[in-house]
């Protein structure tokens, strides 16, 4: 058994919040560069060049890449041999988010009650997904999720007989409806299978996968390739202003499901595809 004090968790989460917002992951910047080389639209090409410059400026000046520093989505893999001391584990995650958004000069974008809509002032509460895993470490990932692309995400139960083509149609329909509103070039996280709650979680987890890495199942990897090509054939392009690069990547995650069901979820991630992981 390993003892970890909550102060260490608070400090780690706080740092992850601002690091995620300041330093766009290398795989995403590389994705912009690849897209810029192939982009057929002059407007789209110019946008992609500016996104690369923006990422560089943000990195050098330690500033948020995008002003929408999101609602913090925190993924925790908690080792079963860890004993947390000094306070509540879940409170320490929230305190880490509170500290990170304050000290990092990140925007506070959370309202407490969804209908009364008063800003909580500290960007809490964060959404926390916790999984108990073997080991004596805590792996924490912060995904600051912007509102524009999250708003365009969707979920549907298809009929099992609709199969692969049904999934494709639903993903393409979701992307077309989102258009420029989701701030493309986007990463299209797709979940297939599971239950009502599981499928959206799969889509969200998919967004965390590095750009360029396919699903290990061959038929799913093939679906990822075909969907990427079809999404880029929509013409939506960077910022929805036309072009041949609408998506940077289409990561798909799957899970077993009920004999009656074929749930599909699409979690759209805008070009500010931020994520940062640390192990305590």
């Amino acid at each position: 058994m390993r003892i970890i004090h909550v102060d260490q968790i608070i400090e780690t989460v706080a740092k992850l919040c601002w690091e995620a917002c300041y330093y766009l992951p290398e795989d995403v910047v590389a994705g912009f560069r690849r897209a810029e080389k192939t982009e057929a639209s002059p407007i789209g090409k110019n946008i992609l060049q500016q996104l690369v410059e923006n990422a560089e400026e943000a990195k050098v000046n330690h500033m948020p890449y995008c002003h929408d520093t999101g609602m913090a989505v925190v993924f925790v893999e908690l080792g079963q041999d860890v004993h947390v001391t000094g306070g509540s584990f879940m409170d320490s995650i929230q305190e880490g988010v509170r500290t990170g958004y304050r000290e990092g000069y990140l925007r506070k974008s959370v309202v407490g009650d969804p209908l009364i809509r008063v800003n909580t002032g500290d960007n809490t509460p964060a959404v926390v997904h916790t999984e108990i895993v073997p080991g004596d470490e805590i792996k924490i990932t912060v995904l600051p999720k912007g509102g524009g692309s999250e708003n365009m995400s969707a979920m549907k139960f298809l009929l099992p007989g609709e199969g692969m083509q049904g999934v494709k149609n639903f993903v393409l329909q979701t992307i077309k409806e989102a258009g420029g509103k989701a701030c493309p070039p986007v990463v299209v996280g797709v979940g297939i299978g599971g239950s009502f709650d599981k499928v959206t979680s799969l889509a969200k987890h998919a967004v965390l996968r590095e750009i360029g890495v396919h699903n290990h199942e061959q038929h799913i990897a093939q679906l990822e390739k075909e969907l990427l090509e079809e999404i880029n054939n929509t013409g939506i392009g960077p910022q929805g202003l036309g072009g041949t690069n609408t998506a940077l990547w289409v990561p798909i995650e799957t899970f077993a499901c009920h004999i009656t069901a074929l749930p599909v979820a699409v979690n759209i991630q805008c070009h500010a595809a931020r994520k940062k992981t640390a192990v305590v």
């Binding site: 639209s41 420029g180 090509e229 880029n232 013409g235 929805g240 202003l241 036309g242 041949t244």
Partner: peptide, 21 residues
């Protein structure tokens, strides 16, 4: 409408040009 005008130009652009991605 700039969005409508530009998206129409690039729909199936690579498909029509035979460019693989």
């Amino acid at each position: 409408d700039l969005y409508e005008q530009e998206i129409a130009k690039y729909e199936n652009y690579n498909l029509n040009k035979g460019v693989g991605i």
